[in-house]
Design a binder for these strands. Structure first.
Lengths: 189, 189
DNA sequence: GTCTATACGTGGATAGAC
DNA sequence: GTCTATCCACGTATAGAC
């Protein structure tokens, strides 16, 4: 059962606008106009704007990891692959004018008690952390300072998150470049 | 020349609402109602909502560092003081229901080309990083892994940022607690 | 300086024809 | 299923009396 072309067009447009302008600043009117569909068609596929948000976040996670795989999938050396995660972020931030992380951004716009939404966002984050974890298992680094893999895992994850957020504020990739260097140092040779 | 009581009441209310509900989701109407002032009084002090935002961010930075000082000012040992930065964040996130960082949050709501606003946000971040820097100079840690102070400075800063953002998503303090532990390890004994 | 009344746009969402 | 027309609440901001 294939999704209708209209539904996909709505999601494409909404994904772009939610990220570029923000969720709250993007109106239904603009979405239907740019997607070239009727107002009622949108409400046919998505009962409310909030439902569109849910679909947006879930689909964005899938696309995000597909694009990550396209970027790092060809790299065999696990350490190089891990460091390429930083390059992936740098590449994205350059491409998207340093808009920061899509998931963090939408989370910042939502009411704090919308736990369902924060769970969806957390899902992407946990998956990324697990992705790093798997790479660390392959690398099996001998780091005497950060005693165990879990601590190193957390460190690299937090470095990526912190650097992406920072890049979105400073509007330059320096924090991400520094974070990569730090990760490289922590992993040893 | 003292600021009018009305102006301060507006800023108090706006600060609370901008953080709790978001900047875009907070209307002028709610602000004037909760501040108990007339609509035109607000526009007398702030020509537009955007001007109120500017004042909000600047004042929030001042208050933020005042409150930080109140939290860690009594600590003499520089390493303990540095680690208390993490406790400060944990304490704040508990108090504010894991709303995340006030400055990052508002940045996520703004149009990406509002460079004036992002500069104000960056000001708070740079000041925090410099605060960490000064403490590191006092600690003068002998870390053989992270070769120089600047790299350690960046690491700790990014850990704090990443962990605060993460806490705002997971709605629990674990990331901040981990980040503190990591920092402690990196600083050595 | 502070008030009330109001202008005018846009928000999300629904009705009912086709 | 897709369309147009429309509802009503709320958004920011201004006018003009006091």
């Amino acid at each position: 059962m294939k999704e209708s072309a209209a539904k996909n067009r709505i999601l494409d447009v909404a994904s772009r606008l939610f990220y570029e302008q923000g969720y709250n600043s993007t109106g239904i009117n603009q979405i239907i106009e740019e997607a070239e569909i009727a107002r009622a068609s949108l409400y046919n596929h998505f009962p409310s704007k909030r439902d569109l948000l849910t679909s947006y976040i879930q689909r964005a996670e899938d696309i995000w990891f597909e694009e990550l795989e396209a970027f790092v999938g060809h790299i065999k050396n696990p350490k190089k692959k891990l460091l390429a995660l930083f390059d992936h972020r740098i590449s994205r931030q350059l491409k998207f004018n340093f808009g920061g992380c899509r998931f963090i951004k939408v989370g910042a716009e939502l009411p704090n008690d919308d736990l369902a939404a924060f769970e969806l966002i957390d899902h992407q984050k946990s998956r990324l952390k697990e992705y790093i974890h798997q790479l660390l298992l392959e690398i099996n680094p001998k780091n005497e300072l950060l005693q165990n893999l879990e601590m190193l895992n957390e460190t690299i994850f937090l470095l990526i998150e912190g650097a992406t957020v920072t890049a979105g504020i400073t509007k330059n990739p320096e924090a991400l470049q520094s974070a990569k260097k730090i990760a490289e140092t922590l992993l040893g040779q």
